[in-house]
Amino acid sequence: MTTSASPDLLVRGLAALCAEDGHQATENRSGNLFHWFRLAGPGDLLDAAKRLAAHGARLCTITAYDPVREHGHPRHELAYHFDCQGAMFTVTIELDEADLRVPSISGLFRNADWNEREFREMYGIEVQGLTNSKRLFLDEKLDAGIMDRVLPVSVLMNGASSRDLWERLLALRAKAEEKA
């Protein structure tokens, strides 16, 4: 999965799309390289993806997350992780909360489809140009953006399952008594 194009060219091209100080490079103790790019805006995503595709990069995954996790004030960022000649390239975009939309890159990277469908249902981020909008994991009855919610299990349950079960049993018993 290597190409003849130099990854240095790619690094320079992606850095040009970043805000000031938007590019960092790190290396771990095994000597693996990691490039981190923070794009100036979501509008630059397709440009960045085109450059990565032209250099034979492979899309590894896409991560949606809330960088602050402050209750009641969700914020969204997307990190696109690519492999290019053994080095990891992570391209991050910050989304506008008033307009949670992002263009699909599945035209450039065929394997983006599942990743885009997943963050669409988990974080409620709309993907423009997504050809298959069928839910991947969550049932259609569940609200989108379930990962934005911070609900402790104790609050979520609130004894509901045991109460429901008890009420159902009582109703069944009443029905049986009526028949008798």
């Binding site: 590894c60 995954t61 991560t63 997350y65 809330d66 960088p67 992780h81 992570t90 489809d113 599942w114």
Partner: peptide
């Protein structure tokens, strides 16, 4: 290939932990 992406905010719990498993890439 298995990938783990970790974000921390200085606290003891992760801000985000995402993993992409090999099967995820192979289903299609």
């Amino acid at each position: 290939e298995l990938i783990y992406y970790l974000r921390t905010d200085g606290s003891q719990t992760p801000n985000r932990l995402k993993w992409r498993v090999p099967s995820y890439m192979n289903w299609d």
